[in-house]
Design a protein around this nucleic acid. Structure first.
Lengths: 203, 203, 203, 203
DNA sequence: TATGAATGAGATTTCATTCAT
DNA sequence: CATGAATGAAATCTCATTCAT
């Protein structure tokens, strides 16, 4: 009579432990021994289920990208009003890039030139947010509701405003002496969109 | 009769090679063998000059921080006009965070919780740009030339706009299909300051 | 309603696969995993039926020796005329040592000092062909129909002529540029006996 | 003040130990640990000097082939009289294939299909002994001093007579109950050539 | 019998570091 | 300062064997 929580299978125990390990130490710094111990499984089981350290790592990256892709599909796409789109996207970033385990993995992937993540990630971003934003901005510029600016510069700025803090929060908290992080985080999407929208719209 | 250019000493050959190696592979992934080969020196020389892999790594980080600190000292501090300050800072970032060798090192340091870099880097940022910006913004809000916004949110956004692209340019170029990177990069400070200033000032 | 051919039982599937595997890789190089996959059975079944890798191997060797012993019992023993005996034996070798799966096993056994095969194999050879040949040759020498030679040297030569090509055919085909292997093989016993008999008999 | 014997360098100590180990256990069965211990060197030295177990193995095979090639170059080639050629070749085999350490390696290589040895070995044999023999035999047949036989069959027999005992001596000694092995071995070339020559020449 | 997962011992290989010269 | 060789600890991975079902 086990409940579902207890009956975690070996493969997922390994994945969890490995995610933690890779997050802390990166691919090169991760130790199979530690992952096994953390997962409470026999070291050989890691190879039984995932073949190699590299493949284990890739599995984790793929899961992460899949998850992002999945979340994105469900939202944003449907909206129309520009401000709503920006806010929605900002909230999307705010909720899905807040995972403190994945941020280090992501950073290191980018540092490594991370071909895999670059490809999948960029593809997902380009198909999704980037296209959407480009269309919205260029449309608004044409209609005269936005100032005549380079949409790519605007998008780069918008994504930067959103992701930078999420990715670098420990650093930024330190620099800006933010003590009420939770509150700061919650108010971030609104603050971003307020700044961005005021910056871009015609007076 | 060698001139100074030719007479690179072993220590600096090692430092150059090591910087490259750490940039590509991180601390854990770096290989002393490869550094030695790349530097064209004997492996043991690395230990003779730098004692250990970790110390070699630290030397490099410190050099980087020193350089930043040095550049910062020379500028910005003296300016008064808010828009000038923003533009100046943006240009500062644009020129000093463009080093493609250091970006990966920086990213990985952040990913690792990089106590060392976090401390030195944050300290430098807080003392310098952050303080300056905070003062400027809060002053302008008081004087009514800026809207009444949370200065910390604004600063986080400003830094994000600036650094995000510099750090993630390969990714962002991909996503936004930027082909004229050089041109895009050159125009970035102006575009950022234009957006930010319009977003923050009172109409 | 399967017929006997179809209904191969697990044990014999394993034996077939294992023979193939041991032939290719030897005892040390063989992998239980591969045998199981090749046989299309679960790895644990191999242990259920054969207890261990070593026992599985022994089973195969024993089968091989049994088969040889069996074939030998049926023939040769009964013959009288020397030339007939040589030809018969040569044909016996030619047909029973042509198995391309067993040759590598045999070679490796010999290489290993193969106590097991050495004992069983040597015993079988000594009891059978060697004794028979020795008697025939020494008898013929006494009767003056053979030249006065050392019967052991003659036998070593005769066996060598026969087995060497059978064992090393890939090598020898290469060296002698034999393209019509089938034909060459068929004519071998006659060629051997012709040479040997002419070499040994009195003029 | 060491004499030359004592001052064996690490690489050759490893080669010696490895040759012994591969001879006893084959490539798959050999253990790096054992080789290191036997050579009295640190395990890592094996990788320092030879990169991997496989490469170490290949180095040994190549040395063996080189040695054979070297010996062959010095002799046989110059001779004219057929019987002399046969005797010379027989003695060549007898002295160079008697190495009890290499025989097992050779056997296992052949068992494995040993592409490398097959190629180099076959090439050396074809260039050398095989060509020489073929020419001699076909010439003698034409001149009427040899019976009209298939030269390839004759060569296969001649090589077989020679090599079989050298390769399988433990087995053959057992079968033929040879106790005076040294004596038997010494007399072998003469016995072989006597049988072969009588078998092949016209009466 | 049959299966997929698990185990433990050990095999190969790597790598930071040091030594002798 | 410089070098090639050496070391020891540890890391990755393998594999025969067994277990639970």
């Amino acid at each position: 009579m086990e409940n579902k929580q207890d009956k975690k299978n070996t493969a997922s125990l390994i994945l969890e432990a490995a995610t933690e390990e890779f997050s802390k130490f990166g691919l090169a710094g991760a130790r199979i021994d530690r992952i096994a111990k953390l997962a409470g499984v026999n070291k050989a089981m890691i190879y039984y289920h995932f073949q190699s350290k590299e493949k284990l790592y890739q599995t984790i990256i793929e899961q992460f990208v899949d998850k992002l892709r999945h979340f994105f599909k469900e939202r944003i796409v449907l909206l129309d009003n520009p401000e709503e789109i920006f806010l929605n996207l900002s909230e999307f970033y705010n909720s899905h890039f807040a995972n403190p385990t994945f941020i280090p993995i992501l950073l290191r992937e980018i540092a490594s030139g991370g071909d895999m993540i670059k490809k999948t990630f960029a593809e997902f971003m380009a198909e999704g947010p980037a296209h959407k934003l480009k269309a919205v901005i260029e449309n608004s510029v044409e209609q005269g509701s936005f100032r005549n600016i380079d949409s790519r510069q605007a998008i780069a700025s918008f994504i930067g405003m959103n992701l930078f803090y999420l990715i670098m929060s420990p650093l930024v908290n330190n620099i800006l002496e933010i003590k009420d992080e939770k509150d700061f985080r919650e108010k971030r999407p609104e603050a971003i969109v307020d700044l961005f929208f005021n910056g871009i719209k015609t007076k």
